[in-house]
Design a protein around this nucleic acid. Sequence first.
DNA 1: TAGATTGTTAATCGATTAACAATC
DNA 2: TAGATTGTTAATCGATTAACAATC
Lengths: 213, 213
Amino acid sequence: MNSEKKPVSLAVIRRLPRYYRYLADLERAGTTKISSKELAALMDLTASQIRQDLNYFGGFGQQGYGYNVSGLKTEIASILGINQSRGMIQLGAGNLGRAIASHIDFATSGFDLLAIFEVDPKLVGSHLGGHQILHVDEIEAFCRQQHPIAVSLCIPEEAAEDLVPRLIACGIKSFLNFTHYDIGIHYDNISVENVYIGDSLMTLAYKTAALEQ
Amino acid sequence: MNSEKKPVSLAVIRRLPRYYRYLADLERAGTTKISSKELAALMDLTASQIRQDLNYFGGFGQQGYGYNVSGLKTEIASILGINQSRGMIQLGAGNLGRAIASHIDFATSGFDLLAIFEVDPKLVGSHLGGHQILHVDEIEAFCRQQHPIAVSLCIPEEAAEDLVPRLIACGIKSFLNFTHYDIGIHYDNISVENVYIGDSLMTLAYKTAALEQ
DNA sequence: TAGATTGTTAATCGATTAACAATC
DNA sequence: TAGATTGTTAATCGATTAACAATC
């Protein structure tokens, strides 16, 4: 039944998490229905865009009424695939790794963080956010057993060049990449989300200069 | 002389940091010149897009030759405004705050991190990445003296609602926002860059599901 | 000069917005 | 039924790509 044909644009997909967050907030506040117009005002979008976005996936609303908040939230979760639980590992338990492992709710985003890998022997064996820290050399054995499909890459850029091929060989297909190593360019049939915080800061520098005009 | 007229699209601006990184790498490797075609192959873009992007700001290349790597890097730095040094503060010295303060090179992105503010009394008075940690209540006095223009917001979403108005009152105009609090919707004449790591992870969930088709 | 490659205009493509008929 | 609001088509807008004349 769910055999959608036309490929959905990534621009639409990238807006879905924000819809999801607003719907979760509305649900928490006890709101049961919302119109595209109301949601647009709340999110500072056009009602037209919201209806267009949602209709890529099917008619979730009811004419004359609007959208059911919980229902729409569930639909979006299903489209994003965050109602699933895919095995994920993390590389790196340094400052950034600790922040991500403790700060991000993997389960809410459709992943299950299975273990964290580190080179620093002082950290190996300890725990972080309820997850065991293993040595990087155990990756291969671990993956053979647990078959994680995704990785959160919280390592220095220099380390990425060596580790990414190993992860690929282990069957890892999805990367949440905090390094500047360009994974997508080097491999096919994988998915990558880059989080370039430094680039965001540079963009902020530009916007800051623009404010001063 | 630099009185550009037409407003440059944000899509172009967001590509500039990546150009800058590649040019910095090339410069480090001793490459002095590069053509749009070569750079396009390296970055997996079209040569056309690169030339179009750069020509929003002026003719940095030389026909029949290409672009001077160092020269172009400097031009991009100047467009982004990262050759400047704007006062920035950070709120939050928790896991995420520690990661950002120690992991991100603010100077390379045009900012000077002046101080970090925390509510946790155990952290106040200590240092983090060479920066002093002050109590949040000292923000107003600090800003009166040092006039930072930007802030890195590494605090829980609940805290943002109270703190953002205080920051605005202190003259802060630019926000690197790691919370889900929607600053841009609430104020005018400010600039915001949101880093929504959770949203990126949800997008990765979608891409992962798409791989499995 | 000949070859290469830019700067720039024109063509294409995609994404957003507007409009309105369908319908709850 | 009348009013409201969706689903969807058409119009607009913007961004990317292609093409080529200018020129180093």
